[in-house]
Structures are given as C-alpha cells and as structure tokens.
Computed example of a mutant assay.
Amino acid sequence: MEPTDPTSGLPFIDEHQVRVVAPAPNTWDALTTWIARTHLGVSSGFAHLVDAEPRSVTGTLPQQGSTIPGFAVAESVRGKRLTLVGRHRFSHYALTFSLADHPDGTLLIARSHASFLKMPGALYRGLVIGSGGHRVLVRRMLRDIGRSAESRGTARAPV
C-alpha cells in the first residue's frame, strides 16, 4: 500500500526555494535544528489562543509523529523531505520542505498548502497570505536555515 500524501486535499498556496552552498546532510541538520529551536515562530500560547492542534512539543524532531506548537511531523525522509501538518480554528495546513541536489550544493524548497475555514478563515487568509507576510517569513526562514547549513563544518582546524 502506498503512503498517503499529507497535503492531499489541501489547496496549494506557494513555493519558495533557496540555493544552499552545503551538502544535503548539513542542510537537513540545519533545517531540523532550526525548526526544533524556533518552533517556526509559533508559541504554545498562540497555539492555545487559536485552538491549534497540536499545541505542545512532543517527541524528537524530525521523527514522524513528533510535534511542535501548531505542527506535527507527518512525513520525514532524512535528507530529502519533511512534511509538517496542523490545524486551528481558521485553517488546515501543511508545510513541506524538500531538499534536492544542486551543482553548488543543495536546493532547499518550502511548499505551503492550506484550506481556510468559512468567513473567519477567509479573513485570516487575507491577513496572513494576502498581506505578503507569509511570503516574507518563509523566505527569511529559508535564508536563515541556508546560512546555518553553510556555516556547519566550515570552522577551520587549529594550526
């Protein structure tokens, strides 16, 4: 039986990518460390306020089933793909990170899918997506992860 696509049924929102001058293992480690450290900017308090599921940290990222506020790991293929899913009173959503080989290192891609629920969801979509805020935050996130990956393993050995 083929695994189900965690983004199935969720409309595509957007895709952003950054070229990372680092190998895929460094990029993967930077990605998962960044997510575990920042929780993608979602606090437990905010998750509770919007009635998000999940609301807290469980397990160890990037293991499938582990969670951070607002997101659960639905798919984790080391060095290739990480899909996070969640829901709250305004939306059901998925964020998929993919890593692809690139002549200069790794291409790190973030794809967003979401459905927005009724009128409050439409207003939330306008606030988050329509304002351009989502685009700005995702691009910043990818740049930060890329810089972190590029700095891994570049420390010089003592002379």
Rank of each mutant, 00 (worst) to 15 (best):
R111V: 08
P120I: 04
H134Y: 14
A114H: 07
A100V: 09
T106R: 02
G126N: 03
D101Q: 15
T96K: 05
A94W: 00
Y93H: 14
R111A: 14
R111H: 09
H102K: 06
S131D: 13
V136L: 11
A100E: 15
A122R: 05
G105I: 03
Y93G: 00
A100N: 13
Y93Q: 14
G121N: 01
F97M: 01
G132C: 12
S98G: 10
L99C: 03
H134G: 12
P103K: 13
I109C: 01
P120K: 00
A114P: 13
A100G: 12
S131T: 12
G130P: 04
V128A: 00
G130L: 11
H102C: 04
A114F: 09
M119Y: 07
L127D: 10
S112K: 02
A100S: 10
A110T: 03
H113V: 07
H102G: 06
A110C: 08
I109P: 02
A114I: 09
S131I: 12
G130I: 11
L95N: 04
G126P: 06
L117R: 14
R135Q: 14
G132F: 13
G121R: 01
T96D: 09
I129Y: 07
P120Y: 03
A100Y: 12
A94F: 04
T106A: 06
F116W: 10
S98Q: 14
M119D: 07
A100F: 12
K118D: 14
H134V: 08
A94Q: 01
Y124L: 01
T106V: 09
L127Y: 15
A122T: 06
G132V: 10
D104C: 00
R125M: 01
D104M: 05
L95W: 08
H102V: 07
A100M: 13
G133V: 07
Y93I: 03
H102Q: 13
K118E: 15
L95Y: 01
L108K: 00
V136I: 10
K118Y: 11
R135D: 15
P120F: 06
D101F: 11
I129T: 06
V128G: 02
F97I: 04
A100R: 14
G105L: 01
L123S: 04
S131M: 11
G105R: 04
L117G: 02
P120S: 03
D104A: 05
F116M: 07
I109S: 00
R135L: 06
R135P: 06
L123D: 03
G132L: 12
P120R: 00
A94R: 01
F116R: 02
D104S: 11
G130S: 12
P120E: 02
R111P: 08
V136Y: 10
A122I: 06
L127R: 11
D104F: 05
S115T: 15
Y124S: 02
S112Q: 09
M119L: 15
G130Q: 11
G105F: 01
I129H: 06
F116K: 03
F97H: 03
G121W: 00
D101M: 08
F97S: 04
A122C: 00
G121Y: 01
D104K: 08
R125L: 04
L107A: 09
F97T: 04
R111E: 15
T106Q: 09
I109L: 00
G132T: 13
A110M: 05
D104L: 06
P103E: 11
L95V: 06
G133L: 09
Y93S: 11
R135C: 07
A110K: 01
A114E: 15
I109V: 15
L108R: 00
T106K: 01
